[in-house]
Design a binder for these strands. Structure first.
Lengths: 172, 172
DNA sequence: TATTGTTATACTCTATAACTATA
DNA sequence: TATAGTTATAGAGTATAACAATA
């Protein structure tokens, strides 16, 4: 009988997207599949917990997080840029959160076309609670990697992201 | 006038999910948002190119990639595990690819409940072309990071992924 | 003319659950 | 009883495009 508790686990024990790599695949493809599957692994867990624990979704949580750091509110067009989705979708997410009483639309005098969206007092309170638990989840999920390596990973991802952004904006 | 060509870009120039971090946020949360936004940045670009260049989607491409390394075909239940989606969704993606003539269901004698899914000759040819271009896209998008750093990133993501997998499977 | 936000629409992806036919 | 796959359904997420009001 195999003592599973002491068997050293290897990445191959967990089939996912990365399993599709072939010996002849180049290293960049392997890196991409590993980046994507790492991110998806954590993202799916967070999505699932947000749904079961708080009945909310990642885009709704993200919008509240963006609003939380702007107490005076944000214009929908700015939210659209930061969340990288189109205006119509911002309208939809805002409608949902407004119906739950978590955000409110505030008319701005200087431009009668636009509104500021901001957290209501209940929205602030609700988000603060969720954010605290959310951060604990993140710490839990990253705790398997030593601090020094987390720091290196942070720096490398920053470089990758900047390089990719610049590449894409110069080829747009 | 600003000479934008020689202005050094910084990450703050590209608003996205990571912009929601606050000074008081802990490092793990920053790491997570950076991981998620890096992955999303590249994923969205790949999704967009797959759609406009080949009229396909990431899940369809992924299924073809899984099948490509198994010339004798794969059972749907196995595809379900590897792609980490439920059986019903595998049926749906298979239906689409079958309608386009890219995969086929093959009845297996030993178990009359199940089918093997495998690429058709046209499917193989189509996938080989897409995969070649796809790999060029990946190389292009990662080319801004020096090789040594890509290697370190690969190793760190492997460690993170393994630790996360083990953590989640031990708490399931 | 351009921008802000809304509305309508369509499609992909996903999970859940009930179902069938086998095993 | 358990498993393989199908079907139906519902909801999230997204893009596109037409539109009204305003700049």
């Amino acid at each position: 009988m195999i003592d599973t508790a002491t068997q050293p686990a290897v990445l191959q024990d967990f089939p996912d997207l990365e399993s599709r790599t072939q010996p002849e695949d180049h290293q960049d493809l392997r890196l991409w599949l590993r980046l994507l599957s790492s991110s998806n692994l954590i993202e799916n867990e967070i999505r699932s917990r947000l749904r079961t624990e708080y009945g909310t979704t990642l885009p709704r949580f993200d919008m509240m997080a963006q609003l939380h750091r702007m107490p005076d509110g944000m214009k929908m067009s700015k939210l659209s840029r930061y969340m990288m989705v189109t205006n119509g979708n911002i309208t939809g997410i805002t409608d949902q959160l407004e119906k739950e009483g978590l955000v409110e639309r505030v008319k701005v005098a200087s431009d009668r076309r636009s509104s500021l969206i901001r957290l209501t007092p209940i929205g602030k309170k609700t988000f603060a609670e969720m954010a605290k638990v959310h951060e604990q989840w993140i710490q839990e999920l990253f705790s398997g990697l030593p601090e020094q390596k987390r720091h290196t990973l942070f720096e490398l991802l920053g470089e990758l992201k900047l390089a990719t952004h610049m590449h894409l904006s110069s080829h747009a």
